[in-house]
Design a protein around this nucleic acid. Structure first.
Lengths: 218, 218
DNA sequence: AAAGACAATTTTGTATACAATTTTCTTGAA
DNA sequence: TTCAAGAAAATTGTATACAAAATTGTCTTT
């Protein structure tokens, strides 16, 4: 990750996640190049990738803007995630190995011991990553990573309360059981519910605050 | 599509589909630039896009190669397609409008009247496109278009016999009925079967010929 | 004022030069 | 011969200059 192109990609993504550039705002190659400390060429490479991630949108006039997902978009995003993660979990269950189960249990152990939010976020991501890799489909990996990299998903995690975190941990435990039993349908059902719940935590919070999380986080 | 970057993208994709560059073969930016009649800069843009399409693979040593999907990859590809197209058809059924149904029936009419292979291929693609757009999810569109743009999918269509084409048309007719009734589950079931059948036509042909279609097409 | 034409500015697109890296070739020692 | 080291060639990565396109501002005409 020493190449200028990767630096640009990570830097811009981080700027978007940290809300230093807002949804709907125009992205100018020259500005970004200065912010990233590289030339326009790697910035352009990065923009192409970010567009594939749905984080940046290139309009007809050739200008790039930070994506500003509508409510429908967000609903759609979670629906797709539920479907794809369900598929991944089912495949992981079908391909279950003792090594996989022990990886998952290790991950769980760390979360359960130290119930801090940051540890939870880290290992929650790692947990899903293990399942995704176990599913053994590079296309699925690529598609899901694109969905998960959405700003909304990133913000959702911060909306979890302690009770919701412990509920989430319980779901992870059940998912591990399902995979250990090689029960694809069970695994799919658990994770689908898991994602659906994340969606409702998110939309509940948006309704309560009456604003988008993007604005609150700024 | 007058920009050099789009020319490069389409040209390289066409070279891959026409098997003028073979799976596994290395892609050199300079060579491609000459073949496309543009400079290396737009070729690099195109390669990034083709990589996202899984048509080109960039290895650790930074060299790009034409993707060479294994049997498992192909199996995986069809499974993902079946799932995503199923989802698209279900959503299209839920959002059914008379205009949508009439679009589909028009498309069908053209295929039924002129049962030539090229017309079938054209309007088969158009038919799926209509459903995809009706599903109203830009992320789904992007993901499915990437899967459909695979060389394998491209080659599958050419493997259809007249009987298989008429069977395929019948499935399209049933799918239209399902959507007209707004029956999401029915629509999903029909299209899932449709894709699965395409998969078996493909793998049957590969087994019969004893070689990959890539080799026969060259 | 309002609309249109056109110049000035900004922004993106492409080509090219050069730097960095990887691969290939050559040479020499064990 | 085999292997390693290092030079040479090939290839990719980045910066920059300039071309093309889009946007903005200004002036004129009505």
């Amino acid at each position: 990750m020493s190449k200028a192109s990767d630096i640009a990609y990570e830097t811009i993504k981080s700027l978007i996640f940290r809300n230093e550039i807002r949804p709907g705002q125009q992205l100018k190659e020259e500005d970004l190049a200065i912010k990233c400390g590289v030339s326009r060429t790697p910035v352009r490479d990065a923009l192409v990738r970010l567009e594939a991630d749905f984080l940046v949108e290139k309009r007809d006039n050739q200008r790039s803007f930070v994506a500003d997902p509508s409510c429908d978009d967000i609903d759609d995003l979670f629906a797709l995630r539920a479907m794809l993660e369900g598929h991944a979990a089912a495949r992981a269950a079908e391909r279950m190995t003792p090594a996989l189960v022990s990886d998952l249990r290790n991950c769980l152990k760390i979360i359960e011991r130290d119930q801090s939010v940051s540890v939870f976020l880290d290992h929650n991501a790692k947990f899903h990553q293990i399942i995704l890799l176990a599913a053994g489909s590079k296309r699925l990996v690529s598609m899901l990573e694109r969905l998960i990299s959405q700003a909304v998903v990133h913000h959702t995690a911060n909306a979890y309360s302690p009770e919701q975190i412990s509920k989430s941990i319980a779901e992870h435990r059940e998912l591990t059981d399902a995979i250990e039993h090689g029960d694809a349908d069970w695994a799919r059902a658990v994770i689908t519910g898991h994602i659906r719940r994340a969606f409702h935590v998110y939309s509940q919070r948006v309704r309560t605050l009456g604003v988008s999380l993007d604005e609150t986080a700024a």
